[in-house]
């Protein structure tokens, strides 16, 4: 009985996480259908209106529909999360795997560089990178990817190290497989689970960092509907009209919650050591 209740609890969190993430994906893909209005359409005469049947979340300082902007914002956030994590994995996984597999001075140097990057507060590093790369969502994606490379590299390295000690790797070597073959055919496929978990949680970080960058005015340039950018512009108007600040913030929180829950559930399922 107790066991089932526990399973249900776990299951429920996973369902909630999956549901929230799915909602985000649906909003991202189906934005034109769901939005009901042009996220960039300005109506200066109808600015800062409270929620109504026509404008579910009210309007912003230019009279733009906040619901439409929040929905289109999902597309932007999801895109940033996806691309930056792909970038981080593309760079971090080979680097970490190589460091773990080769060991020695390469491992030491690579990991010290990763430590050095990791020691910077992420948001500050991202601000600087965006300033250096020039404005635009692309710079934000690259910056977040770079910030996340050491995280992926560390996890990959640890996973590779753990797998290298397993007997089947020795067996493969004894059978005359090359280093490359051992790494790609035997070690890496068994390392993907922890990396996948890390990347899912990283999605949440990416959304927060993008929003944080836009909040500080260093992210996605206006008028593109970025949740953080909306929140940044809202600060001037929130005393007069709280809606402009409440809804984008809620959207960020919900998206981040979804990815965190999903990451937790995946960790439970995929990582046998934590399965009890």
């Amino acid at each position: 009985m107790k066991r089932r209740w526990r399973a249900l609890l776990r299951h429920r969190l996973a369902i909630v996480g999956g549901g929230l993430t799915a909602a985000l994906v649906v909003a991202a893909l189906g934005a034109p259908l769901i939005a009901r209005d042009d996220p960039l359409g300005m109506h200066m005469a109808a600015s800062l209106e409270p929620p109504s049947a026509q404008h579910w979340f009210g309007t912003d300082q230019f009279g733009r529909d906040i619901w439409a902007r929040v929905v289109y914002g999902a597309r932007l956030s999801f895109g940033v999360g996806l691309l930056s994590m792909l970038l981080a994995t593309a760079a971090g996984l080979p680097l970490g795997a190589a460091a773990g597999y080769l060991g020695g001075p390469f491992d030491a140097l690579a990991m010290r560089v990763m430590d050095a990057v990791l020691a910077f507060p992420a948001i500050l590093l991202a601000i600087g990178l965006v300033a250096a790369l020039g404005p635009g969502t692309g710079s934000g994606i690259i910056a977040i990817g770079i910030v996340y490379v050491p995280v992926v590299a560390r996890v990959s390295r640890a996973a590779v190290l753990a797998r290298c000690r397993e007997e089947y790797v020795d067996a493969a070597r004894a059978l005359g497989e090359t280093d490359w073959g051992v790494l790609t055919r035997h070690v890496l496929p068994n390392c993907l689970a922890p990396v996948l978990v890390q990347v899912t949680v990283g999605f949440a970080s990416a959304i927060v960092i993008e929003a944080g960058l836009s909040f500080l005015g260093a992210g996605t340039p206006p008028p593109a509907p970025s949740w953080g950018g909306m929140l940044n512009e809202a600060r001037q108007y929130m005393a007069a009209s709280p809606c402009v600040a409440v809804f984008p913030g809620l959207a960020i929180s919900i998206a981040v919650l979804g990815f965190n829950l999903l990451g937790d559930a995946m960790r439970d399922v995929l990582d046998p050591r934590l399965r009890r």
Binding site: A204, V208, A211, G212, F215, G228, L231, A234, R235, M238, A239, P242, A245, V246, P248, G249, I252, S253, I254, V256, L257, N260, L261
Partner: peptide
């Protein structure tokens, strides 16, 4: 706890001030 992790500090701060 999860909400705590998920609410970005910049939004929380702005809401608390509000």
């Amino acid at each position: 706890a999860l909400a705590g992790v998920s609410i970005p500090s910049f939004w929380l701060g702005v809401m608390l001030i509000l």
